[in-house]
Amino acid sequence: MTATATATPTRVRPSGTGWRGFGRLLRTETAVWLRDSSSVFFGVLFPTVLLVGVGFGIPGMREPITGAPQDSLWYGVTPIATYLPTVLAMAIGTLAILSLPVTFATFRDKGVLRRMSTTPMRPQAIIVAHLAINVATTFIGVALALGVAQALFGIVQPTQLGVVLGAFVLGMLSLFSLGMLLSAVVNKPSTANAVASLVYFPLLFLAGLWTPGPIMPDIVRQIGQFTPMGAAAQAMDTGWFGEGFPLLQYVVMLAYTAVLLPLAIRLFRWT
């Protein structure tokens, strides 16, 4: 293929007209998706496994923090409880950034999206179906993690539940927007894997997976608050353990969503 030829990619136009059969599409896609054990493990079990592993594997995680100043966010909280917001942010990112782009790159690579374009169903439906699957899985994974954490460690009642929920929802919006942007353009499953890892692991670091709340170096916090996962974790920290409103983090997440989502829709390639 010549350079000029590749400069004009084939335009396969999504032209389906309706949503007939969407229910069956969602059911079938879910059934097929569940056959992939790695997506089920990472989506559903990984947050819980990580919490339990860290809670029992690292000494002192279940002892209340007394070394911190009495007026700090963290006074009297167990370290494992301070880890929860980071794990929840990670749970979102795992599906949005690791799982979703690989799914779409595989579809594109195999021609599944092209195949759909020949039917009356809108090919957009398959995007909606997979967003629904991944969002639902995020909720299931998070619910399981919270349930197990409550049973094993006892989780702290958030000081501002609304702020935590808002941060979680905005975290989902911004991280799924980022995931959709990667999904929009990456062509090969192998590239998707590589790119997703390159984005995912730095985000995990900046969200405090290795240095959660109380022990996060200031520089990581400063940078992290401008990333979607870091902002989600910090905003949930504030809502869970502190007072006040994490305005900056909320704005950061909104901004990511507002910029990345339309971009993903614009750039989405069907072939």
Partner: peptide, 21 residues
């Protein structure tokens, strides 16, 4: 050049597509 999910069965694929029409 177009394929399906590796893990979808023949019957599932046909039923799925039948639903679109």
């Amino acid at each position: 050049e177009a394929a399906l999910h590796d893990k979808i069965t023949v019957r599932e694929a046909l039923n799925l597509f039948a639903g679109f029409y």
